[in-house]
Amino acid sequence: MNHDVIVTCALTGAGDTVRRSPHVPVSPAQIAASAVEAANAGAAVVHIHVREPETGAPSREVALYRDAVRLVRESDVDVVVNLTAGMGGDLVLDQEDPLKPVDGTDLVNALDRLPHIEELLPDICTLDCGSLNFGEGSRLYVSTPDMLRAGARRIQELGVKPELEIFDSGQLWFASKLVEEGLIDAPPLFQLCMGIPYGAPADPGLLQAMVHLLPEGARWASFAIGRDQMPWVAQSVLLGGHTRVGLEDNLYLSRGVKATNGRLVERAVGIVQDLGAQVASPARAREILGLTERADA
């Protein structure tokens, strides 16, 4: 069991959730305000995507990241900033002509997924460690071994901690190879992502098996989506890991009750404490993850 638990809040994500809940933050100001709310509730880390303010559609626009991160850093709340670097991997295929990408495709090379990381130098950025059939239909997430090595190398040069996003056991195998090859600085940080169709199912036995495959010295967290989100807080802590909640992964506090990020973090903090563990502060999270203290923190 982990007795010193980092709680991450994934604030908004890139899914089609804006129309399903009024609490999903969209504009940079809303995202920053939600980050502050989550931090005040006990989250040591906030995981940030950005969206087009007018439509709520997912975005890779650097200016939107710039505004959101500036507002978080200008607040009087200390929190570890984790920016997604996974946008730009979407490939949607035409059933009749598989070589023809169709609407919804946003596929760029490894380095073109990183301009906001280059400019803003967050504490952490994500690295999605493989390709995946992403749900029903003909949508794939594409991240090849060559792309991952190029991305990991550049993130390492920037001095940013990569959070290795793992959606199935093969991705864990490859991410461990990146560690072996010296492309990931110690201690490596893994996020085990469970229940996303069609990656690793949200099965406690599978989570335990994946934890046993982690390289020595790894720091890790896990989450599951939808109604498995809160049970997974306990699963993670009991197996020795950290945890993540937030509106990216689940919109409900209970049946029929729409959540906010702050309320989800409060619920996770309560579970951690009921298990007899303590919730790590941002300063303690930096120690655990081997992060450098920010001058503006």
Rank of each mutant, 00 (worst) to 15 (best):
G89N: 09
G256R: 04
T126V: 03
A33P: 00
A175R: 08
L11I: 15
A152I: 08
F190Q: 04
T260P: 01
C9T: 12
A221Y: 02
A268P: 07
F167Y: 15
G159C: 07
E61W: 05
D228C: 12
Q95V: 14
G86P: 06
P215R: 01
E287R: 14
A259D: 08
P197L: 13
R284N: 10
L132P: 01
A175T: 01
E216C: 00
G170E: 11
H49T: 10
G241E: 09
W173I: 07
L192S: 08
G88Y: 10
A285V: 02
Y198G: 14
F190C: 03
E96W: 13
A29N: 12
L189M: 06
T243R: 06
L111Y: 03
W173D: 14
L99I: 07
A38E: 06
T144K: 05
L107D: 03
I6D: 12
V269E: 07
Q273W: 08
L158C: 07
R153K: 15
G42F: 08
P58E: 08
S176L: 00
A202V: 04
V7K: 04
A10D: 08
S131L: 09
F174H: 05
P201K: 07
P204V: 06
F167L: 07
E54S: 15
W232L: 01
V102I: 15
A29T: 14
A186I: 01
A110W: 05
E136F: 10
H3F: 03
I6V: 14
I48Q: 04
H3M: 11
A44H: 05
G13Y: 02
E293D: 07
L178G: 09
G270I: 04
E54V: 03
L251R: 00
K258E: 15
A39C: 05
R139K: 15
E266F: 09
E54T: 14
L214G: 13
S34P: 01
R19F: 01
E216S: 12
V211Y: 07
T243D: 10
R244G: 05
V269F: 07
M230A: 05
P204Q: 06
S59L: 08
A44S: 15
W232A: 10
S143N: 15
G137A: 12
E180V: 00
L132W: 02
L207Y: 06
S176G: 03
V269D: 04
H242K: 10
L164M: 04
S169A: 15
R60T: 13
A33F: 06
H47K: 02
A41P: 04
L247I: 00
R20F: 12
C129R: 05
A10H: 06
R149I: 09
H3L: 11
T17S: 10
A175F: 03
V7R: 03
D296W: 14
E248M: 11
K100R: 15
D228Y: 15
I117Q: 06
V72E: 04
A268D: 11
E216F: 02
Y65G: 10
Q273G: 06
C193E: 05
D97P: 00
V92H: 13
Y141M: 11
L132R: 00
I31Q: 13
L253P: 00
L120C: 07
C193I: 14
E266H: 14
G137T: 12
V72A: 06
A175L: 02
F134T: 08
K161Q: 02
T55E: 00
L107C: 11
